[in-house]
Simulated assay, not measured.
Amino acid sequence: MQNSIKTSMLILVAITISCNTMKSTPSEAKKQQDDSQVYFKANGTEPFWGLTISEKQIKLFTMQDTIVMPHQKPIQAMDSNVKLYKLKSDTDEMSVQIIQTECTNDMSGEKFPYTISIDYKKNKELVMHQLKGCGKYNTDYRLNDLWVLEKLNGKEMEKSFFKDNLPSLEIYSETNSFSGFAGCNGMSGQLFYEKELLRFTKIITTMMYCGDTNKEREFLKALNSATKYTIENNRLTLSNPSKELMVFKKID
């Protein structure tokens, strides 16, 4: 009887330990949530360092230092794609400049679309430390799906407006690319993505004749004009500063 009780107690303890191991601690859960909100990452060598930018914070970590600052909107250059974050607390100071120009990691040889320069000092130091490296934006994972056109320039779309079927997009956020059907011809291209910015670039199509009444040209013109997006209620809305251009419905 005693052996049976001991065995039962051991099983209960093992189950409890297993459950506790599987559960994330509050700090781990918070870290996972913060990581999922990161929209820009950068790193460098000599010395090794890393930078993450999320909706809530900008975090720099080196072999010696870690600096965490509340997120702020960057200063945007008027004539080029250059962003500057200027951050300051009671003890620390940091500026991060992001320039859209190709950058190659010195150790791995990997190429990135942005060059990063960082100046920082910690604990009221007198001298700034300087870092240089490469970075890229993390394309919104929610875009990674199959989308079919519902509206074009404010009008509900029907199959009869196109030669064969409604236009559709399949977006691959990992590779910043897309493929699909423009209503008559097949198409493919690249995505240019930054926070709150989405462009469809390098669009190529097959060359089938589609007739004068087909809305494929109007569709492709709108796709080329899109600069912003929203995702809500399984709908992808593409727009530019002038107007809403297209609404797609998620079907995958």
Score class of each variant (00 low, 15 high):
residue 143 L to E: 10
residue 177 S to C: 05
residue 55 E to L: 14
residue 28 E to R: 07
residue 82 V to I: 13
residue 123 N to F: 06
residue 156 E to V: 15
residue 80 S to W: 00
residue 233 N to R: 09
residue 143 L to Y: 09
residue 28 E to V: 05
residue 41 K to C: 02
residue 142 R to Q: 14
residue 236 L to T: 08
residue 91 T to V: 10
residue 195 K to I: 02
residue 233 N to S: 13
residue 81 N to F: 00
residue 6 K to A: 08
residue 30 K to C: 05
residue 39 Y to L: 05
residue 47 P to Y: 01
residue 218 E to M: 15
residue 136 K to E: 13
residue 153 N to P: 03
residue 214 N to I: 07
residue 250 K to Q: 12
residue 85 Y to S: 01
residue 148 V to R: 15
residue 92 D to K: 00
residue 161 F to V: 03
residue 161 F to T: 14
residue 57 Q to E: 15
residue 93 E to Y: 03
residue 33 Q to D: 08
residue 146 L to M: 14
residue 229 Y to I: 06
residue 41 K to N: 00
residue 237 T to F: 06
residue 9 M to A: 08
residue 116 I to C: 01
residue 14 A to M: 07
residue 64 Q to R: 11
residue 93 E to W: 08
residue 111 K to G: 09
residue 114 Y to V: 03
residue 46 E to N: 12
residue 141 Y to T: 12
residue 71 H to C: 09
residue 229 Y to C: 05
residue 221 K to R: 13
residue 248 F to M: 11
residue 174 E to A: 15
residue 247 V to S: 06
residue 190 Q to F: 02
residue 79 D to R: 14
residue 195 K to R: 11
residue 41 K to R: 09
residue 37 Q to P: 07
residue 34 D to V: 13
residue 161 F to K: 13
residue 21 T to K: 05
residue 162 F to I: 05
residue 240 N to Y: 11
residue 68 V to P: 03
residue 154 G to D: 06
residue 205 T to N: 06
residue 90 D to S: 13
residue 171 I to M: 01
residue 3 N to Q: 15
residue 211 G to Y: 04
residue 181 F to R: 05
residue 164 D to M: 14
residue 8 S to V: 00
residue 252 D to M: 04
residue 114 Y to N: 13
residue 104 T to C: 02
residue 86 K to E: 14
residue 203 I to G: 02
residue 100 Q to T: 11
residue 148 V to P: 09
residue 140 D to Q: 07
residue 222 A to M: 10
residue 209 Y to F: 15
residue 107 M to A: 09
residue 69 M to Q: 01
residue 79 D to Y: 02
residue 112 F to D: 07
residue 231 I to T: 09
residue 86 K to H: 00
residue 248 F to D: 13
residue 32 Q to K: 06
residue 144 N to Y: 07
residue 102 E to A: 10
residue 158 E to I: 15
residue 165 N to K: 12
residue 23 K to D: 04
